[in-house]
Simulated scan of single mutants.
Amino acid sequence: MSLRPLLTRLVLSAALVAAAVGAQAAPTIEGRQLSVGAADVQQYLDQSFPRNQDALGGLLQLTLSQPKLALPAGERLKLGMDVAMATAGGAPTRLGTVELSSGLRYDAQTQGFHLQQPTLDEFIPAQQGGRLDARTRTLLNAWLGDYAQREPIYRLDPAVAGMLGALQVQSAQVRDGRLQVTFNQDLGALVPAGMLGN
């Protein structure tokens, strides 16, 4: 067997796997509400991390990775992340895991769900006796504010988002283990059934 057909098959297989992993599940639409399940949001987050936050002109770098989403009963989602710190270009040292809670907003410009007023609730140190010092907490809060403003925790497929046009967003919330946005019009007539997850 020649090497070229084998390499071609390997490349095609890798491309198919990448396409399957990158495929975005369709949202569910009921009347004026569009919702996305926790598993789909987790998949989006997995592809969006790790993320870095520089400070002091690059002398410090905070790395956040391994996002873990939970959508408990109530109006706030929970998100845990591993935190590591590197100084002066050195290797990052894992500090521990931060757990935050947040409300939810939908931004029509980014076509995505964003954190709304997130708060750091808990820090679980990687080593016994570890703690989140003031400098690291300040860096984390700066990153969190920027991330909540600019980056969605889930972005709608552009084909679906484009069909929503200039609809007005009435609310966004965590409900029944899903992220949900309510618009001012029924969505069923705007988005073809073949593009929906329901």
Rank of each mutant, 00 (worst) to 15 (best):
G58A: 09
G58R: 03
L60G: 08
L64Y: 07
S65T: 06
P67R: 05
K68F: 12
L69F: 09
L69H: 02
A70G: 03
L71T: 09
L71Y: 11
L71M: 12
A73H: 05
A73Y: 04
G74C: 13
R76Y: 06
L77P: 03
G80L: 01
T87V: 07
A88D: 09
A91S: 11
T93A: 05
T93R: 12
R94N: 14
L95H: 01
G96N: 08
G96T: 10
T97D: 05
V98H: 13
E99R: 00
E99V: 10
G103R: 01
Y106I: 06
D107G: 00
D107N: 10
Q109S: 10
T110P: 00
G112Y: 02
F113M: 06
Q116V: 01
Q117A: 15
P118L: 06
T119W: 12
D121A: 14
D121N: 15
D121G: 12
P125F: 13
Q128C: 00
D133N: 15
R135P: 00
T136D: 15
R137D: 14
A142Y: 07
L144Y: 07
L144F: 08
G145I: 01
G145Q: 14
D146T: 04
R150L: 12
P152D: 07
Y154N: 05
R155E: 10
L156Y: 11
L156R: 06
D157H: 06
P158L: 01
